[in-house]
Write a protein that binds this DNA or RNA. Structure first.
Length: 564
RNA sequence: GCGCCCGUAGCUCAGUGGAUUAGAGCGUCUGACUACGGAUCAGAAGGCCGCAGGUUCGAAUCUUGCCGGGCGCGCCA
């Protein structure tokens, strides 16, 4: 929408294709369009602003030397003399690269586009409204959110933002695992703690949940429902604790996520799915399709026919459904709701479930590509060079709430996003807490706050900020200024790439780079200076940087403060 | 044993087919405001991109093998 680079790219591509056509090369290529011509940013200014290796790519097909092809293309581009808005000079370099040197107009267009688009700069329609259901976190409601859940929450929420900004229709979903045996264990654990609180002599079993949060729930139940509990029969009381503990845990999880700035469009209950008969229904359908057979008193799904290494059990010999049966029913339900693509963020310990689940969907007749699973690697917490131990069974683990209390939501979000999702993440608690240049979050936010401060200063000096948009941008000529604008120009592409590659960390890095360029500029050039035209132009530039910083921080789920 | 992920500067990691010179932060060393916020900036040192073949005009990037690390491989969720 406001992607100036896209305009540049199209201009270069149509120039090249015209050159190819007039030189007769295009005929030989067969099915070849403008989109097959790669246009790249150059790393060095000596190589121009953009370049294409098209001559090198075509060398094999055309059976000519790359340099020779490049020369032919460029010759025929010149003779045609297409109208160009941006390209000023074309040069052949190295083994056959065609380098494009642009007039400064494109940089001014970039700033104008940002001023015009504001908070929508970087958004696109790339996804064409494709409906995506993004499911993430989906932690068992048997304990507080931990830092692994926090990483999933940060990544999922950011990815949802990025996809949405890229033109996808995204719905975020949390699958509530409220049907399995672990809910009975949760209820029983709370019930036993309740009896303990009442002074009864109870031996708390090893299989129970050991954490102190269980005692908290038991105490709350006693405070709020003490009298009713006294009157209950054994069976009734067990059910009460199952429901009570579950709803408490869910409420706590929602609160933690909310504090972290993560909200879900849908909380989907596994129990409701099961109660509605969806699991038995899906098994029936699979049976009808001939994908199920009985062996050893169990029902097996022929997942091997869909690429699995062995078949999987759907119904156990005791008649219970396996988690796989439930998962297939759930994913079928998702697709029936009209989504084009299901994206799940799972932990690496669920790696083995990907193929069976996908096989289940294929067995139902859906394409395997309708399910995409992102395996988010675990993380380790480091404090003063020491690894912080986390053990759920012993009830000692760092919770999402602890993390937010310790380092704050913004720092936590950034640190959890800064690495590739398939890499182990080493989270340095000390660094995340530090308010210094070592901490990338503050470095970025500081750039944003600093720009706001400049604008406050300008206002105090009586500079008419309303005139900034109309300033003469030709006053911007310093390398530091032009480098910033090039970076700003690349932003829409960065968003698109991080959407396609599912890489929020890419934008985390982009934000850091942009902040760095601005800090560097700030230290060598004065924004507010004696030359009023230059001041206005630099204010426009600074304002554009602030806009893009705010936009990218928004996609990452991090605040963009005006003062710190 | 099989499958997936990872292996890049002392440390934590970007870069995943493009151009002498492979980047950033931390750490180490040297410097910079009586001027818009020093939570900043400028500079230096630091690399057989795990190892060995292959594909390619071109490989950190693709491929094969090996070495090292992590995680999976249930009628548990």
């Amino acid at each position: 929408m406001y992607n100036v680079v896209d305009g540049v790219r199209r201009e270069i591509q149509s120039g090249i294709i015209a050159g190819l056509a007039r030189s007769g090369i295009l005929e030989v290529l067969g099915d070849f369009t403008e989109n097959d011509i790669p246009v790249e940013y150059t790393r060095e200014k000596a190589h121009g602003d953009f370049a294409t290796p098209i001559a090198l790519v075509l060398a094999g097909k055309v059976k000519r030397k790359p340099r020779d092809i490049a020369e032919t293309i460029v010759e025929h581009m010149e003779t045609g003399k297409e109208k160009t808005r941006y390209v000023q000079r074309v040069e052949i370099a190295g083994p056959g690269f065609i380098n494009f040197f642009l007039g400064r107009r494109w940089l001014e267009d970039v700033l104008r586009a940002i001023m015009e688009a504001g908070s929508t700069y970087g958004r696109s329609r790339m996804g064409h409204g494709t409906r995506i259901l993004l499911e993430f976190v989906s932690a068992n409601p048997t304990g507080p959110m931990n830092i692994v859940n926090a990483r999933a929450a940060a990544v999922g929420a950011s990815l949802a933002n990025i996809l949405e900004a890229s033109g996808y229709d995204v719905s975020t979903e949390y699958y509530v695992n409220d049907a399995g045996g672990q809910i009975n264990v949760l209820g029983r654990s709370c019930e036993l703690r309740y009896l303990e609180l009442k002074g009864e002599d109870v031996e708390f079993p090893e299989w129970g949940y050991q954490g102190s949060y269980i005692v908290d729930i038991a105490r709350l139940a006693m405070d709020k429902h003490g009298k009713e509990l006294e009157a209950m029969e054994t069976e009734e009381r067990a059910e009460f604790f199952r429901d009570f503990a579950l709803s408490r845990m869910l409420a706590d999880q929602k609160t933690s996520l909310s504090r972290f700035g993560v909200e879900f469009d849908v909380w989907f209950s596994e129990r409701k799915l099961v109660d509605a008969g969806a699991v038995s229904e899906v098994i029936d359908i699979l049976k009808q399709r001939g994908m199920v057979y009985q062996a050893d008193d169990a029902f097996w799904l022929r997942t091997t026919e869909c690429g699995d290494e062995k078949d999987r059990v759907l119904v156990k010999s005791d008649g219970d459904y396996t988690y796989l049966a439930g998962d297939i029913a759930y994913h079928k339900n998702k697709l029936e709701r009209g989504f084009d693509l299901l994206i799940n963020i799972w932990g690496p310990d669920h790696h083995g479930h990907v193929t069976p689940t996908r096989a289940g969907l294929e067995a139902l007749g859906y394409p395997g590509s309708s399910l995409e699973v992102l395996l988010l690697q675990f993380l380790s917490l480091m404090s003063r060079g020491e690894r912080v131990k986390m053990s759920k069974r012993a009830g000692e683990f760092v919770t999402m709430d602890d993390l937010i209390d310790e380092v704050g939501s913004d720092a936590a979000r950034y640190f959890l996003l800064m690495r590739n999702i398939e890499s182990h993440l080493e989270f340095d608690l000390g660094l995340a807490k530090e308010h210094s240049q070592a901490n990338p979050v503050y470095y970025i936010q500081y750039a944003h706050a600093r720009i706001s401060s400049i604008f406050r200063q300008a206002e105090e000096q009586g500079i008419a900020l309303s005139d900034v948009d109309g300033s003469d941008l030709s006053n911007l000529a310093e390398d530091a200024e032009l480098d910033i604008i090039r970076k700003l120009a690349a932003y829409p592409d960065e968003v698109v790439m991080s959407a396609i590659e599912r890489t929020p960390n890419r934008l985390a890095g982009y934000a850091l780079d942009l902040a760095g360029l601005f800090h560097s500029f700030y230290n060598s050039h004065r924004v507010i200076n004696d030359d009023s035209d230059l001041t206005m132009a630099r204010l426009a530039l600074s304002g554009a940087v602030r806009t893009v910083l705010a936009n990218v921080l928004g996609l990452l789920g991090i605040s963009a403060p005006h003062e710190m």
